[in-house]
């Protein structure tokens, strides 16, 4: 059995949807950030697959994957630090309780 680009796209679509579900539904800030990581993994799977199947001779897709990793690593670092800071001030990391934007 041989699989092509479509299989990778389908897999990444499923992962992306699961990540979106987690990001939208989870109450814990940490879990939301983990879901965001899932989304970025889905994106990277997509990029590596495209790089291999569509532009195999240039490595551009790899480079972008690398940068995407950098960005998501930075995002995780800052995001978790923010969660920590919020937790220290408010003694909670539950998103529904952090409703200071309420108008």
């Amino acid at each position: 059995m041989r699989v092509g680009l479509e299989a990778f796209l389908l897999l990444s679509a499923v992962l992306f949807s699961i990540g979106v579900y987690g990001a939208v539904s989870k109450r814990s800030a940490v879990q939301v950030i983990m879901s965001l990581e899932l989304i970025s993994i889905a994106v990277m799977v997509n990029m590596v697959a495209f790089a291999r199947f569509v532009t195999p001779d240039r490595g551009t897709g790899w480079a972008f994957t690398l940068f995407a990793m950098v960005v998501s690593a930075a995002e995780v670092g800052v995001g978790l630090a923010l969660v920590l800071a919020i937790y220290r001030r408010r003694h909670t990391a539950e998103l529904p309780e952090l409703d200071e934007l309420k108008g």
Binding site: G4, L5, A13, F16, I18, V20, P56, D57, R58
Partner: peptide
């Protein structure tokens, strides 16, 4: 999530280039 997934799946299934085999050239 289901709506978004549906859209993404539809987009992926409609990807024009039906590629099965990987090209040889590799950096």
């Amino acid at each position: 999530a289901l709506a978004l997934g549906g859209i993404l799946l539809a987009a992926a299934a409609n990807f024009p280039k039906k590629t099965i085999s990987m090209p040889d050239a590799m950096p």
